[in-house]
Design a protein around this nucleic acid. Structure first.
Lengths: 342, 342
DNA sequence: TCTAATAATGCAATCGATTACACAAAAATA
DNA sequence: TATTTTTGTGTAATCGATTGCATTATTAGA
């Protein structure tokens, strides 16, 4: 097993000191052109590669950035991370990912581990709305840039990149209303989580703006999966008068609703218009494609990374940035009636 | 900005040396119970946290593992990485992800960066079949455990975890034959990549075992996306006699084929049975669910991580492990005829 | 009581790179 | 030629934790 060449090896070989080697390699101005070239050539010949760990210890920078998400195997988070990685890579940073699986203790653990690993920043999407603020404070106090994306918490000194969930909820609901829907159901996620609160608020606002009454019996709380969608659909089918529109805060519940309704002979979008949220790939691929709201994960990831870079490159200045991306409504068959009823 | 407490701070406070502190914290046997407790208590009080970077420099271990994949935002790789992360986390390792975007130079770059970052191992899925063997050798020579998953290359001393693509191709084709298909098309991916070669080989073998002739005009080479599926479907529609079965080596091409065929009035599965490969979530969600082959990404990730741990914990012994997982055929509507024709 | 063995701690080097400061050599100026 | 600048290198400390080898304190044994 061959040992790695260090600047000392080069120094010995050239009969100079490691300091000179280091300066030559870093293109320090106070070095003669001759030695610079000689050192660089020798370094190349000896397959020298800078030891980043030593550098990290010396400089206090690890060039690693921690990313914490509930889980990585969803299209949304996968895409966000992809974009983060792509933006950070050219700047010399690497991404360390951690998953919380929505377990609160895991969130705290992950943060601790990342801090110990000396990451230069933490980008995270909060899993639990009741996250321990002490841990967050630990990060802030240590002056480690912290940026929330998608799911945030308003904390002094912490930047965030989110989409306008209110606007998303508003737009979808408006579209359903434009299609002639008058009795619109909203399938909510965990109402303790802000993004769901906001989507719901958008829904209510759209109703109000169109002169439709808000009826809380038409709002259902779910765990955002296919089965829960089917469950809600059954409840809808049991109603005296069927609703004519469903805005689901998750594509998965929307899918469950559609499956269950169709199996019971309900025509979509003729009888009921359905729309989801997140723009999961399958919504586009279905034969009956599903209207959804695109959260621009790539853009979100890119922005998050940019905010981090800005912050890390201006350590002296305290920057607090709140970026809000606009959601894009993707109108598809599930909520597009051929003939718009008046 | 508060500095982190180091063992020196503790040493000064207790009027002992850093060496003693280090030993006390590491439960070294040669330390008195009294100092051990005192040090640990003080460490806790002073919020001491071990500096992993210093440890890494000293020990030569970083407790970071590099994972290289073509891209992270696909269900398959997302799931594999998730499983890797879950398996490695309890062992104290962190995962650094890199994407190649199928660019060969990126692959080399990533490897170099990971080596510089002093990772303790590299887990990778090869993007380019023509990957530079010199880089691979660099890893092997440095004694850094290297494990291929999903897409491998047979290299001495390198372990791998893959699925039996041959078997996958065989099983799908057999199922189509059992449904009465006699003229079965195969949509291939990049034939330079081994996994596609193997799936194709399985296809041929199944034909042969069932007494069906292999016709190379029925095999199409594609880039494995929806558009290419549509392209092939158009070619099929132009044939004198329509095929009655399609085995696609990608779910996306299968989807494209189905979309195009249906738009042209072809009934699936009655006229043509279609099957894909990879078990992407949408294959299950479609109204006309698509038959596919599950590659057990979670298992693959778990196994890959396990092989790594084995290797890293037995540095003296050279272990070379070749794990082959069995694919699972997911029979769905797209290839399941109600009445099986003889 | 004195020596030998053992337990507990200190000393100092090490991992590899960076950098403030010191110093010598060369070049510029008087 | 003597003096001041400038330029290029060397010296040595630093980042934080670990560890082989002293060294001292304590206990056991004779």
């Amino acid at each position: 097993m061959k040992k790695k060449t260090t600047i000392y090896d080069i120094a010995v070989k050239l009969n100079i000191t490691a300091a000179t080697v280091s300066r030559a390699l870093n293109n320090n101005s106070k070095i003669s052109e001759a030695t610079r070239e000689l050192v660089q050539k020798t370094a190349l010949k000896m397959n020298y590669e800078q030891n980043k760990v030593a550098l990290a210890l010396k400089s206090g920078k690890s060039y690693n950035v921690g990313v914490i998400v509930p889980r990585i195997d969803t299209t949304f988070f996968g895409s966000v991370i992809r974009a983060i990685e792509e933006e950070l890579y050219p700047a010399g940073y690497h991404v360390i990912i951690c998953q919380t699986h929505d377990i609160e203790s895991r969130e705290v653990e992950n943060i601790t581990t990342l801090i110990n690993a000396q990451v230069d920043g933490i980008l995270m999407s909060i899993s639990s709305p009741d996250i321990d603020l002490n841990v967050i404070n630990q990060i802030v106090k240590k002056n480690i840039p912290l940026i929330f994306f998608d799911r945030k918490k308003d904390i002094e000194g912490v930047s965030s990149v989110v989409i306008n969930d209110f606007e998303g909820g508003y737009k979808v609901t408006k579209q359903l209303i434009e299609q002639g829907c008058k009795k619109i159901v909203h399938i909510n996620g965990n109402p303790k989580i802000k993004i769901f609160q906001e989507r719901c608020r958008g829904y209510k606002h759209a109703l109000k703006d169109s002169g439709l009454a808000y009826d809380e019996k038409l709002v259902f709380e779910t765990k955002s999966n296919v089965e829960e969608g089917r469950r809600v659909a059954k409840l809808l089918l049991a109603m005296d008068t069927l609703p004519d529109g469903v805005f689901s805060s998750s594509d998965f519940t929307a899918l469950g609703v559609i499956q269950e309704l169709k199996e019971n002979g309900v025509k979509i979008p003729e009888d009921i218009c359905v729309a989801g949220f997140a723009n999961e790939p399958f919504t586009k691929f279905m034969e009956l494609s599903i209207t959804s709201v695109d959260q621009s994960p790539l853009e979100m990831g890119k922005m998050t990374a940019k905010v981090f870079l800005e912050q890390v490159n201006n350590k002296e200045i305290k920057i607090e940035k709140k970026v809000v991306l606009e959601p894009k409504l993707m109108i598809r068959k599930s909520s597009l009636r051929k003939v718009i009823s008046k």
